[in-house]
């Protein structure tokens, strides 16, 4: 029998480095999301009239402030990437065929990209006081729109 030999660790490949980066991202984003999401839930569901206060005017009131726009954008980006990476780990664990894995990872990536782009467009192109063809304010806009027009 041969004595156990020292095995030199393989030099880290690019793939290893990328995986390590995502591992760290998962933890850092997780901690940040705790702050972002619990504040989001507290402001929307605990203060004021709770879930019953949420309507177009409520959203318009929040997104009138760049703070909430950036807040929601950070939440969108971090939560989607955190979720994508987590779902990716699950795909790798359960999809044993290479083709299945490739297809599922592709679908996941597409879904994530679409949701991030859509959400970002909604936040940054939001119009709190939309008007109809005749220039009249639509129903359901916040009351501050009357002062603006």
């Amino acid at each position: 029998m041969t004595a156990p030999q020292d095995i030199k660790p393989m030099p880290p490949t690019r793939r290893h480095k990328v995986q390590r980066w995502w591992w760290l991202f998962q933890r850092v984003s997780g901690v940040l999301l705790i702050v972002l999401i619990f504040t989001h839930l507290f402001v929307n569901l605990m203060t004021g009239d709770g879930v019953s206060q949420i309507d177009f005017a409520f959203v318009a009131g929040k997104w009138a402030s760049p703070l909430w726009q950036w807040w929601d954008f950070a939440m969108l980006l971090l939560a989607m990437l955190h979720g994508m990476n987590g779902m990716g780990y699950i795909i790798n664990d359960y999809a044993s065929r290479k083709t299945t894995r490739t297809v599922l990872h592709a679908l996941l990536g597409i879904a994530t990209a679409v949701i991030i782009v859509l959400g970002a467009l909604v936040i940054w192109t939001f119009d709190p006081c939309p008007v109809d063809a005749s220039g009249a304010l639509l129903e359901g806009v916040p009351s501050f729109c009357e002062d603006v027009l």
């Binding site: 309507d55 177009f56 005017a57 959203v59 318009a60 969108l76 939560a79 989607m80 979720g83 987590g86 779902m87 699950i90 879904a111 949701i115 859509l118 959400g119 467009l121 909604v122 192109t125 939001f126 119009d127 939309p130 639509l138 129903e139 359901g140 806009v141």
Partner: peptide
């Protein structure tokens, strides 16, 4: 984690209705 991920997809889609009209949202 999986439950939250799928809710998140739906939640971004429903919020996107603010770009359609106040009524739809």
């Amino acid at each position: 984690g999986v439950a939250i991920f799928f809710f998140l997809l739906v939640h971004v889609l429903d919020t996107s209705l603010v770009r359609v009209s106040p009524e739809a949202y």
